[in-house]
Design a protein around this nucleic acid. Structure first.
Lengths: 195, 195
DNA sequence: TGACAGCCCACACAAATGTGTGGTAGTATC
DNA sequence: GATACTACCACACATTTGTGTGGGCTGTCA
């Protein structure tokens, strides 16, 4: 059930248009590929549906959706030997599903990290951490907590059912979790953008 | 030029549908709000356009686009004092524009980081770095380079027009840029996802 | 009072759009 | 030879959809 070259081309176009926010109509697809008949487009769309790359809704204009299989991904490279092109297929370790990163329904927010208390865990000042709001977490989770009126990032430690907030920097000390320090959420991603 | 409550509601619905991948038709909007006339919807859409939240294309079904002003963003929290709710408006430092992160047209790929040579810069083993392909870069840029058949991440140094690749870890040594080490691209973002 | 914005309705019309039927040609498979 | 898939075309038809005109009611602001 592999895609033919032509079907690939159509899929690439659909992906582009869907990402831009407005899926094409059948006639817009026909125009793109200089097809003079709408039937031709329908053949291709039906092939994509049949092969599991596309969902179509009936009687609704532009109503198409990519399946998981067809979603836009950015290749993740692993080891890159000398001599071969960087983006050669052999180097591709996995795909990063861009469309899924932020599609979660949970209550998410970013926190801009202040201070260097988590430097040992690779969380630098001014990094953004994506936080899922939740009142508790597990041992070793990186959590956002409120200590003395300041939101900071720490590692949660569970020692015999007593909880501690541990920094990843020896210049800071461990804090026991009490009524003055409250867990706000769990860090699920960190992002650093270079200018 | 503030939005009225009703216009806000309409915008929220549009944003939801646009994010889901299929902007609504005028009649679908009417159904959502139980309007019995398409004219009513057009009044609201025109108001949103006039106030700078929406672009509409003529004679094309579902052809609407959010303006920068109206785009979906995730709040970035700064300092969070005790006592106030976490997501209180006072805490919001900025907004992270999800829709823009990956919208760049350039040739991008992710590289899974192996080794600890960049630990000092907060880039840990197994982090993902988003790389923009380019054959050269500037002093202090973090670059992906190919050294002895392995893609690694390093800091580029320009000393009197001679280029060096510098690790952020004292256990590794500086390498002069030569025919055995080639710049593949520049790191523009790092991402770490916790399971 | 007048002007304007917000919010709603009814209805008609033309254009855009999906659907359906049927056809041709090439290629591959059994 | 039969069958199936791919890749195109032509054309008609019904529905969906955007557009346009006209109207009503409620406010606010000058």
């Amino acid at each position: 059930m592999e895609l033919t070259k032509k079907q690939q081309e159509v899929l690439v176009f659909l992906r582009k248009r869907i990402r831009e926010g407005l899926p094409p109509t059948i006639r817009e697809i026909a125009a793109e590929f200089s097809f003079s008949s709408t039937g031709t487009v329908r053949d291709h769309l039906k092939a994509l549906v049949k092969k599991g790359y596309l969902f179509l809704s009936e009687k609704k204009s532009r109503a198409m959706e990519l399946t998981e299989k067809a979603m836009l991904t950015i290749p993740i490279l692993g080891r890159v030997p000398a001599g071969v092109p960087v983006l050669a297929i052999e180097n591709i370790e996995d795909y990063f599903n861009v469309d899924k990163l932020f599609s979660q329904k949970e209550d998410l927010f970013f926190l801009r990290v202040h201070g260097d208390s988590m430097i040992g865990a690779g969380i630098m000042p001014d990094d953004l951490v994506l936080v899922k709001k939740q009142p508790c977490a597990q041992d070793k989770d990186i959590v956002v907590c409120r200590i003395d009126g300041e939101a900071t990032v720490k590692i949660l430690r569970n020692r015999e059912n007593r909880f501690f907030l541990e920094p990843a920097n020896k210049n800071y000390s461990i804090i026991a979790l009490n009524e003055n320090s409250q867990i706000i959420g769990k860090v699920i991603t960190t992002i650093r953008q270079y200018v």
